[in-house]
């Protein structure tokens, strides 16, 4: 009893409670046959499939394909959206005039645009990357523009009163001011890019990638493999978020302070 209390009171281990809880429920579901065992293999089978897939199996290759596509999509999105966001954000009038269009397409599910992108770019690898960068770009654009627009007025005045030119104010103050929001945009953008890439891998004539792996395993009723691919996708999403948070912390150390 005492040990359980000590365990629970150690805050760093608290997240494990949920993990073990989930695995316990999974086992109960499996042993009690509430769920068809064909659909729900035991956790250790899924874990084994995950291990095998990453050590010599195809899963590792699919994982990397998805990673590459997601990073490529985010990079394309960033290269287009960051400069554009700065331009839009630096003039409230310009931003207001395109705000509706940005918001509209930001709210449009990118998956609804698959057919359009297929027509324009064909069924190749590029289509998946472009459709994901489209979605990510709007998120990044929106955040960068807001970061620029919401630059602290006092800081801009402080630079101006010290004799900074318009260009210096832009470069030294407004750009720096927009960085925290830009990183928020990049973090949301990469998450969205992953979502779109995985969906695209399922439905846009794919031969690899995590989306393809999940879809194919399901078609073959290879459930342990399917769960393994789902967990790989989850780990990727979680890892990307942590990675971007870490980059953010070291680049914009002043964020939120």
């Amino acid at each position: 009893m005492n040990r359980i209390v000590r365990f629970a009171s150690s805050d760093r281990l608290l997240p494990l409670v949920g993990v073990f809880g989930l695995i316990a429920i999974w086992y109960i579901g499996y042993w009690s046959r509430i769920v068809d065992p064909v659909l729900l293999p035991p956790p250790h089978a899924a874990l084994k499939a995950l291990w095998n897939g990453f050590t010599g199996g195809r899963l590792l290759y699919d994982f990397w394909q998805t990673v590459i596509r997601t990073f490529a999509a985010t990079a394309v999105a960033g290269i287009i959206a960051i400069p554009l966001g700065i331009v839009l954000g630096s003039s409230e009038r310009i931003y207001r005039s395109v705000e509706f269009v940005v918001d509209f397409f930001r709210s449009t599910p990118a998956s609804a645009l698959f057919p359009l992108f297929l027509v324009i770019f064909g069924v190749g690898n590029a289509t998946k990357i472009y459709v994901a960068s489209f979605g990510a770009a709007l998120v990044i654009l929106f955040n960068v523009a807001y970061g620029v627009m919401n630059a602290r007025k006092t800081r801009i005045l402080a630079a101006r009163v010290m004799g900074a030119s318009r260009w210096r104010v832009m470069k030294d103050v407004i750009l720096m001011e927009s960085l925290p929001q830009t990183f928020v945009g990049l973090r949301n953008g990469v998450s969205l890019a992953l979502v779109i890439v995985v969906v695209a891998e399922m439905f846009i004539g794919s031969v690899d990638g995590l989306g393809f792996r999940v879809f194919e395993a399901q078609q073959l009723f290879d459930m342990p493999d399917m769960y393994a691919a789902i967990f790989a996708a989850g780990a990727l999403g979680y890892g990307l978020n942590i990675l971007f948070l870490m980059i953010e912390k070291s680049f914009v150390h002043w964020s939120g302070k």
Binding site: R152, A158, G163, R168, D172, L179
Partner: peptide, 21 residues
Amino acid sequence: REALFPWMTAFANVEYALTLR
């Protein structure tokens, strides 16, 4: 809080006024 530049050290903040000049 809103007048100093949080991305610069205190020294760099003071120095920046001279850089602009």
